[in-house]
Amino acid sequence: MAQNKELLFKSLSDAVFEMEEEKTVTLSNTIIEENIDAYEAIEKGLSDGMNRAGQLYEEEEYFIPELLTCADAMYAGLDILKQHLKVNNAGIKNKIVIGVVEGDTHDIGKNLVKVMLETSGFEVIDLGRDIPPRDFVEKAKEVNAKIIALSTLMTTTMEGMKEVLAILKKENLRDQIKVMVGGGPISQGFAEKIGADGYAVNASEAAKLAIKLVIGGIDHER
């Protein structure tokens, strides 16, 4: 069973990576039928396949048409698997405002992070893509969010992340609202440089980071 499971995850990852939507759907259904953990399947299958596709894009083997077609396969699998996610309550009652910063319309990564955050018990307010810095702050204020999660794929939009932090600081909200960042060009170093509270390399790490931020945030003074 254990080996079968790992094999299935690998096949799922391959199906996404190889742009095979129907195969992704079939495998996702098999995973549900065999009572395999959906969260793990998303992490080690769908998300992994998408990461490999992203890697090939970096290496200029894949281009945007390939990436979007991989994403279609990934979403088709996600539609099936996410209904079977067991929601834990680590992040319960905490709200997160998430979105892709202004100037960028790539939201594949953001959508994955959103699913993982919801699975971890957060209430996620998804602003979508190409979002001005000010909108993140306004929405976070409005819904009393604990975290703002910012995503981008493009180096040209990284400034927008800095801007969100600047607005929070200016409005004296920096202590109340944590900021986490992620996406292709973002690194731990960049996160530290702009003074964000955390960086995550992928969707499941982002969920873990969010939990750490809300739990650690109680007695954490900055």
């Binding site: 945007i64 048409p65 390939e66 979007l68 077609t69 279609d72």
Partner: peptide, 10 residues
């Protein structure tokens, strides 16, 4: 834009 991008392969 997105539709056209996918049509390139499909």
């Amino acid at each position: 834009i997105e539709r056209m991008t996918k049509l390139i392969l499909k």
